[in-house]
Write a protein that binds this DNA or RNA. Structure first.
Lengths: 110, 110
DNA sequence: GAAAAAGGCAACCAAAAGGTTGCCTTTTGT
DNA sequence: ACAAAAGGCAACCTTTTGGTTGCCTTTTTC
């Protein structure tokens, strides 16, 4: 299921994947390190199995989860790298803002 | 403390707003602390002014930017709070993952 | 070996997203 | 005073998204 893709998707794709309540909750659940099947993940939701499947594929395309077929079920697991990427992107945005503030403060104070 | 304030929606809305290349680049530009008009922001893009306007409104609804009409133009400026929120959300996801790893390591090592 | 469980695949659908064009109002520069 | 600049508003169009249902295949369980 997890095909060898060249190059991680960028922050935009990651943010887009996170920008849906169902997907964000799926990812948050999976970030506890436990692997789960589609049936399990569909259990505590109002959506159909197929809807959940689609969301899982979106997360997978964004690199946020990976799946392997084990027996009759597909096990999905969390992948930390894209979250780290997204974090560092936001860190840079924050840093740029902070620098701007610092420069402004310096300018005002002299 | 954290009351559900207007113009400061949850992480899902923030991620959704960040999940578009045009919007992410607009926000990154604005995070330098400088305020910009729609005309200015539309200048270095292939999109029409109206398209950019729509994106700015999405960012505004997510609380990521704020605007005031000054004279004949609308000045848009960066708002840091939602980015901080999004960062801390990702931090928590990361932390949960790290704890899971630590527990696994502890289990294996004894 | 049949029934049940898990899930893939495809068609289909409605609503939302992203973008455009046209036109009207307000502000500014000369 | 008036043309140009900035931008709001609204209609419209196309593609994507989020969801559904139906059906078929592969495992597992009894």
């Amino acid at each position: 299921m997890s095909k060898p893709e060249l190059g991680d998707p960028g922050p935009v794709e990651v943010f887009a994947a996170l920008g849906d309540p169902t997907r964000l909750s799926l990812l948050t659940k999976l970030s506890d390190g436990q692997t789960r099947s589609i049936a399990t993940l569909s259990a505590d939701t109002k959506l159909t199995r197929q809807a959940v499947t689609k969301h899982l594929h979106v997360l997978e395309r964004a690199g946020l989860v990976a799946s392997i077929r084990v027996g009759r079920e597909s096990q999905f697991g969390y992948r930390p790298e894209p979250v780290a990427e997204a974090r560092s992107y936001l860190d840079r945005v924050s840093a740029q803002w902070d620098e701007a503030l610092a420069r402004l403060k310096a300018l005002v104070e002299r």
